[in-house]
């Protein structure tokens, strides 16, 4: 018997009156970490609410491990969910919070407390677990939510914007947890609107835009397509003019533009190739450099390319 995939969406649409949340999305996800990328309002939260049985699809079918989550709560025995909501029971300690939720999986009190302690240690909160959640920082609260989602060792972990608003330390910790889960063979879904965040965690992505599925697959493959597209590189330096001369007529650079005397913009059709020749050319020119930026290397540009938006 083959096990049904963790997540299956078959031509799923969800609209709220005239507003479309998700438009004819079909995907199947099983195993590994998958990033759901999309701007605000792209349909990420709608997608997760459909998965969590909070809303019912207007069309199509949603299945978690082969079961419809609107009709049955059975799949949640194998699912951990971290919502984007920041509201928690502030009066509870984190061990209380996590073990109470663990007991909803039918664990005994002692079992639940043991597992909660493990889960909180796993997200690096082992030494503050008797403190009230209300006294936690944003990043700590986010990790408590993750611990609560992990406490029953789920096969599928769903995280809605888990890194949003977290300090760098918490980010690193959360990213480690997610990678660890992925490496243990669990299925992890996480959403974000920041390309760079996802890139640090996984290569497998789903891109949503205006409720539609616009890309699905390996981030690097998608990026490679994007790289062949006109790109800008912005260099802050001491002497833009002097530096500019080094780039003229060097493939794959096809244009140079001065923004002012300290900022130089280079146009290229192959971003990785351009980056590979950049260090040598800069060294050669001897012009001191402050920073190099890729203003087009973000989700908006990627989307602009994918949906053919002429930005």
């Amino acid at each position: 018997m083959t096990n049904p995939p963790a997540v299956t969406l078959d031509h799923v649409s969800k609209w709220y009156g005239q507003v479309i949340g998700i438009n004819d999305v079909s995907i199947a996800i099983d195993g590994g970490v998958t990033g759901i990328l999309g701007m605000n309002g792209a349909g990420k939260s709608t997608l997760f609410k459909l998965l969590m049985g909070r809303i019912r699809p207007s069309k199509g079918s949603v299945r978690l491990f082969g079961t419809n989550p609107w009709d049955s709560t059975a799949p949640y025995r194998r699912i951990g969910y971290v919502s984007e909501s920041e509201r928690m029971y502030d009066w509870m300690t984190s061990i209380d919070f996590v073990s109470t939720l663990a007991r909803l999986h039918g664990m005994t009190r002692s079992e639940a407390e043991f597992r909660a302690e493990q889960a909180l240690s796993f997200v690096d909160l082992g030494d503050v677990l008797n403190k009230e959640i209300g006294k936690y920082s944003k990043g700590m609260r986010q990790r408590v939510k993750i611990a609560a989602a992990l406490v029953h060792d789920p096969d599928l972990l769903i995280l809605d914007e888990p890194l949003h608003g977290c300090d760098p330390l918490a980010r690193t910790s959360i990213m480690n947890v997610i990678r660890e889960m992925g490496s243990r063979g669990k299925t992890v879904l996480l959403s974000s609107h920041i390309l760079e965040e996802i890139e640090r965690i996984t290569e497998q992505i789903v891109i949503l835009h205006a409720g539609r599925l616009v890309a699905l697959g390996n981030l690097h493959a998608i990026r490679a397509m994007l790289d062949k597209h006109p790109h800008r590189i912005l260099i802050h330096c001491e002497d833009a003019r002097a530096l500019a001369s080094s780039f003229i007529d060097k493939q794959p650079v096809y244009g140079v533009r001065f923004l002012d005397n300290e900022r130089l913009e280079i146009m290229t059709k192959d971003l990785s190739e351009a980056h590979s020749i950049l260090p040598a050319l800069i060294l050669e020119s001897g012009v001191p450099i402050h920073s190099i930026e890729n203003p087009d290397d973000n989700l908006e540009s990627l989307l602009g390319y994918l949906v053919g938006d002429s930005r």
Binding site: M52, T73, A74, I79, E86, R87, Y89, L104, G106
Partner: peptide, 14 residues
Amino acid sequence: ENGTLHYLLSKPIH
């Protein structure tokens, strides 16, 4: 209203 319902309903409880 407090936005805490989902903690409980994302567990296997009808």
